[in-house]
Structure formats: C-alpha cells, structure tokens
C-alpha cells in the first residue's frame, strides 16, 4: 500500500476528486440556467411591461425607506406577540395534561380551545376579533386594531403552539416521570424539573417553524388597520400605479425569514442526527 505524496489515504484522495468534479458540474449547470433566464425572459413579448411595473428601480428607491419603517411595525407586533404565544401555549398544554378532577374544567377548556382555534382560518379570527371587539365602542386605547389584531394572532398561534408542547410532553418516556416520582418528588415538580425541560428541548425546531409562520402572518393585520409593511405597499401601489412596492416588501420579508428558516432546518437536522 502506497500513500500518495499529499498525505491522504487512497479513499480520501478519491473522495476529493469526486467532490471537485461535482462542484464543477453543479457550478456550470447553475450558470447555464441563469444565463438562459437572463437572455430568454426579456425576449417574452410582455417583458417590457412587467419589468416596468414590478421591477421599477425608481419606484424601488422611492418606496424602500417608508416600507422599511412600516416593516418595523411588523417587527414590533411580532416581538410582543411571540412571548405571549409561548406563555399562553405552554399554559394551555399544561391545562390539557392535568389529572386532578377538580381542575377538569381547565382541561376541557384546553381541549375546546385548541380545537376551535386550530379549526378556524387565521384571517377569519383576525377579522372577527379585530373588527368585532373595537366595534363594542370601547374607550380609547382599547379600541386599537393593534391590540385586537395581536390578540387574534396570539389566540390562534397559542392553540398550535400548545399542541406542539403537548406532543413534546408526551414524547418524554413515562419512565422519566416514574423515576422522578419514585424519589418522592410531587407531580408538579416532576413535570417542572424533569419532563418539561426535556419536552421543550425536543420541540424547539417545530416551534421555530411556528415563529416563521407568525412572522409572515403579521401581515394579515393589514386587513384591519395597522399600517404595517403590506398595507404601506398597497398605499404606494395606488399612489404610483406600480407593483414594485410589493416586490420590495417581499424582499424585506425574505431578508428576515430566510435566515430563520435555515436556522430552524439546521436545528431539525441536528436533532434528527442526534436521535438516530
């Protein structure tokens, strides 16, 4: 057996050659496709029109700053609803797990709650709560669509988040609970210190996916009033008779959602690897 001068084994040498080869192939085929798109799409008869109304540099520059600041509204709504969702979701999940018969109503409530809010489209909840409750004619800060729109998101999302927490709790093997109880720990201590920490770790990737979905669903509040990015883009569209602001809005969303999506995928695959 001779080892090549590079100091690599024959196997490593072979794998390195293979890696280089696939890199070259992947690179050139991607370049080819991009080239084809760049050359061919402008040949389409309607390209000029589409380019002007969707990819208009002037409109882009004009709408960008305001869209960005409108996006901060989305960020704010997201930032204060996410923790509320986590807390409420966990509370609902625990309520569905209580064994004490005195607390049965709580358990029933948890069950009905998750069924109802997972069964109704988010937009509908946003409409019903966002228009319905301010319609009661409440005094000033309490008629704000920001508040009730957020409430709608929180209610809907906690139902999903609660179900994920519950599946996590159920995935922790019963022997862990037995072991905790056998030491003399109370039921609630066993849940709090033994089951829950393991359950939460397991569902982090799934909850990340909920966060990503929430980031996008904040835009639904545009239907009931708050001037967030989607609504602001609509304003620009009417003003400038051009769709480019929507493209700008989409790009701004992507800048935030792509990294979080990648992070979630990374966490999921890391967890899958750890388990197998």
């Amino acid at each position: 057996m001779t080892t090549p001068s590079s100091g690599l084994t024959r196997r490593q040498e072979y794998e390195r050659r293979q890696r280089r080869r696939s890199l070259v192939i992947a690179g050139s085929s991607t370049a080819l496709i991009i080239l084809a798109i760049v050359l061919l799409v402008p040949l389409a008869p309607g390209w000029e029109r589409v380019q002007n109304s969707f990819f208009n540099a002037e409109v882009f520059a004009k709408s960008f700053p305001k869209l960005l600041s409108a996006f901060l509204v989305d960020v704010a709504i997201f930032a204060w609803s996410a923790p509320l969702i986590a807390i409420l979701g966990l509370a609902i999940a625990l309520a569905r797990d209580v064994r004490n018969p005195v607390l049965y109503p709580l358990r029933l409530f948890g069950m009905v709650y998750t069924d109802v809010f997972r069964g109704v489209p988010v937009v509908l909840v946003v409409y019903l709560i966002g228009f319905g409750i301010p319609g009661l004619g409440l005094p000033r800060p309490w008629n704000s669509p920001y508040i009730w729109g957020t409430v709608a998101l929180v209610l809907t999302y906690s139902a999903y988040v609660a179900e994920i927490f519950r599946s996590g709790i159920e995935s922790v093997h019963a022997s862990q609970r037995s072991a905790a109880l056998s030491l003399g720990l109370s039921s609630s201590d066993s849940m709090r210190f033994v089951v829950l920490p393991q359950a939460i770790r397991r569902v982090i990737p799934a909850q990340m996916n909920m966060l990503i979905a929430l980031q996008k669903d904040v835009a639904l509040l545009s239907f009931i009033g708050p001037v967030e990015i989607f609504r602001q883009a609509g304003v620009f569209k009417s003003l400038l008779a051009n769709f480019t602001p929507y493209v700008v809005a989409a790009l701004i969303f992507l800048v935030i959602t792509v990294p979080t999506t990648r992070l979630a995928d990374h966490l999921i695959s890391k967890q899958n690897r750890a388990r197998s």
Partner: peptide, 12 residues
Amino acid sequence: GIVFQSYNLFPH
C-alpha cells in the same frame, strides 16, 4: 428508594 434496569437518569 428504587433503582431501575434502565437507570432512568435525567438526561438534561
């Protein structure tokens, strides 16, 4: 006290 076949230590 009880000790189980599968240890059942808390992994976290």
